[in-house]
């Protein structure tokens, strides 16, 4: 059983503002039934001062999804649209006395629905049709913008946190590399803006092999920086050893992998045989990356190159 705060339980068992809102002036819909949660937020806005006079929700989801939706309506009623847009998912979680880490995506869903409803009222095209960035996690329909906002609003610095807050990477795992890139870039920007301690910023590579939602909850010890003393030749030898260890498993599946080049922390490999076009190739690359990082004691980035490169 989840440890829900009393307020989460109260807002689930006795939700306020559940149901349809007739003649809503703005509607925001996020999530999907296939993803396990979805929220339809309806707001009524006074055109005089753009104040939200009423709000209702319909939610498909777990206890904390329903509680977060209800809390959101309570928070925004009486606020102007500009005031409402200053709310972040953390405000929703705080209002409820906190949410279990694995459930933070429920508050993010509320935050995203609010943005969608306001955009709908203002006649703007909601960004969720992925104009602002590529759809990164196809399983849960998460785009770059949503990840960036969640990372910034909550100062996320690990892939596990990104999965808890957005669900991205939580299913097939093929988007791990893309999400890592966004997390790394966003953290770097936050460091540059003085919003994040550089020591905490995420660096891609050296990530654990397991998909984020299956990772241990305890922090993972950073790799020992032993490789700084390794020469390039030593690195190449170590990489070849790791690939040799992994080769039997790859060959069992009818594939193979060979080292092409090493540039600092970037390891170029060529996947061949059944690994080419394999839907799980990205997972395999992640696995190789994890093993290499472990062996070299430094974060590395494994980059598959196509034949001829």
């Amino acid at each position: 059983m989840w440890e829900y705060s009393e307020k989460v339980q109260d807002y689930f068992f006795n939700p306020k503002n559940a149901g349809m809102l007739e003649d809503a002036s703005g509607i925001g819909e996020v999530g999907a039934i296939a993803c396990g949660d979805a929220l339809k937020l309806m707001i009524k806005v006074d055109p005089e001062d753009e104040r939200i006079t009423d709000a209702r929700f319909q939610t498909f989801g777990c206890g904390s999804a329903i509680a977060s939706s209800s809390a959101l309506t309570e928070i925004i009623i009486g606020k102007t649209l500009d005031e409402a847009l200053k709310i972040t998912n953390q405000d929703i979680a705080d209002f409820l006395g906190g949410l279990p880490p694995e459930k933070m995506h429920c508050s993010v869903m509320g935050y995203e629905a609010l943005r969608a409803a306001v955009a709908n009222y203002r006649g703007e095209v909601w960004e969720d049709d992925h104009e602002e960035g590529a759809l990164l996690c196809k399983c849960f329909g998460v785009d770059e913008g949503m990840i960036e906002r969640a990372v910034r609003n909550n100062a996320l610095t690990t892939m596990e946190q990104v999965a808890y807050f957005t669900k991205a990477t939580g299913s097939c795992g093929t988007c791990v590399e893309g999400v890592e890139t966004v997390l790394e870039r966003t953290n770097a920007a936050m460091v540059a803006e003085g919003l994040l301690d550089p020591a905490l910023a995420f660096v891609a590579g050296g990530a654990p092999v397991v998909p984020a939602h299956k990772q241990r909850r305890s922090p993972i010890a950073p790799p020992q920086p032993s490789s700084s003393r390794m020469t390039t030749v030593q690195k190449i030898r170590a990489i070849e050893e790791v690939l040799e260890e992994l080769r039997p498993a790859l060959r069992n599946d009818g594939g193979d992998c060979e080292l092409v080049d090493v540039e600092e922390n970037r390891v170029m490999v060529r996947m061949s045989g059944a690994c080419v076009n394999c839907q799980l190739a990205a997972v395999t690359v992640q696995g190789i990356q994890g093993r290499l990082a472990e062996r070299l004691g430094m974060p590395v980035r494994v980059i598959p190159v196509t034949a001829g490169q």
Binding site: F12, G36, G61, C62, A65
Partner: peptide, 14 residues
């Protein structure tokens, strides 16, 4: 259909 299991379990538990 159209509802989520955890929410059902919480209400059943109650």
């Amino acid at each position: 259909e159209f509802i989520e299991g955890e929410a059902i379990l919480l209400l059943l538990n109650k």
